[in-house]
Write a protein that binds this DNA or RNA. Structure first.
Lengths: 247, 247
DNA sequence: AGGGCGGCTTGACCTGCATCAAGGTGCGTC
DNA sequence: GACGCACCTTGATGCAGGTCAAGCCGCCCT
């Protein structure tokens, strides 16, 4: 499993920000002392209920920030209403675009969600003054870019079964850490999963049923999944489940 | 057409680097005087023939740089051989990952290609010393991220016809600037197009034929496309071709 | 308890694209 | 000129996943 990397679009949650109570990586990890305090004094928190829209495509963006609790989604859409989720934000993921005035995605709270926000303008000013901050954000952006490109492989080349298995494996990977058996409460509705996977809700439902009947996963209600054998799930996802990386 | 943005993965070619003979945006636009000279002294050039591999997935990366002439592709693949192109590099696009030791993609020359390269280590050192440089790279990474996410919408939700039309529109957009009628020589084989679009080579061929029979595009040989009516092509691509953006 | 509703599942059918197969075109080479 | 080869096109067929439709489950509300 060495080269299996969570492909969710914003899988930035590394455990390298222990000092910060809100795990605000972008900020915490790059500042010290007075700078950290100055940034901390700029923070504010805001919450949304599940289903609420945080920003529409094209909205002006006055803030940047990161997810403290909950789950939010980034979605792009075509004129005729077809939608594609392009990012999934989990706690510690960064949201916003230093240097950009508008968001090109719709941002929606998938569950109840709390964000830690900074006003964009002063944050951008700090970007120029604190060298570590922008290189930190650069690193995060490269992570996001890798994840987005991994997801392009999923969208372009995997079957419905593999897509669903990939998503479930990712969610388990991020949510479950080291529990045996692995389990997670799905933060997404079937509709949101379909939107992420480039499928329809019916196909997602059928593939989950099939994985359950196969014994690859178990369900408790519709929103809790358990997995006794991650390598079987990874194999269903089209990854090698055994830890060997071919050349 | 106001919100139609080229969705090719690395569409960073803005005309804001006029001063630099090689249009090396990431560097030119962020440095002045002595710094520019210092960076310039680190440059080297290297060329590859069409079809040659520039780097394999997992290769160590000793350089970063950008495309001077030609066209290169970034590809990810599954164990069973399925491949997905995740980025297309055209002149002025940046290649490489400051702070990263390996490339997660296979990089291949689609046409003969010349890169302008910097050794990664000294480049990274400069990143810390020249504040504008990392914020510049951050901006470029955010552009790439937007483009990758736009492409996720194409991969996940568009039909084969729309995918092909989207790709052709993008290539015309980048190659043709203001010519009427728009025309471009395709830098990609049908196979590479299929790889980018998540389709098979046969489907790409059929859809190009169909667009030609429709009168949406014209061909000269297999590799030169002409388009008299861009809005018709955009409509075939599932974009609105008339310049109005619905709320 | 009953009704309404959002979210999920299942079934029947259809279609768009993949697959398999054959043949065409242009170009370099002997 | 004709052979070989890479690239492209076209046709026939099959199937994965989309579409349409019906119904179930859990939950809130009164």
């Amino acid at each position: 499993m060495s080269h299996f990397d969570p492909a969710l679009s914003l899988s930035l949650a590394r455990a390298d920000c222990a000092a910060c109570p809100i795990r605000h990586r972008a900020v915490c990890a790059s500042c010290e002392g007075a700078e950290l305090e100055r940034l901390a004094s700029m923070k504010s928190y805001r919450s949304w209920k599940a289903g609420e829209t945080i920003a529409l495509e094209g909205d002006a963006l006055a803030h940047v920030g990161s997810v403290v609790t909950g789950c939010a989604t980034l979605t792009r859409s075509l004129e005729d209403g077809r939608m594609q989720m392009v990012g999934l934000l989990l706690p510690s993921d960064f949201l916003g675009r230093p240097g950009r005035a508008v968001t090109p995605y719709e941002v929606v709270a998938a569950t109840d969600v709390t964000l830690c926000l900074f006003e964009r303008k002063p944050f951008e000013r700090m970007l120029g003054e604190v060298p570590n901050l922008s290189s930190r954000l650069l690193e995060m952006s490269l992570d996001e870019l890798d994840a987005a490109r991994d997801w392009m492989l999923v969208l372009g080349r995997k079957t419905a079964r593999e897509k669903v298995a990939s998503l479930l494996a990712n969610i388990l990977h991020r949510a479950a850490a080291a529990d045996r058996p692995l389990w997670a409460e799905l933060p997404l509705t079937r509709e949101a999963m379909a939107s992420y996977l480039g499928l329809t809700i019916e196909t997602v439902s059928r593939q989950i049923t099939r994985l359950r009947k196969d014994g690859t996963i178990r369900l408790e209600g519709a929103r809790v999944i358990l997995c006794d054998d991650l390598s079987a799930l990874l194999e269903a996802a089209g990854e090698d489940g055994d830890g060997t990386s071919p050349g």
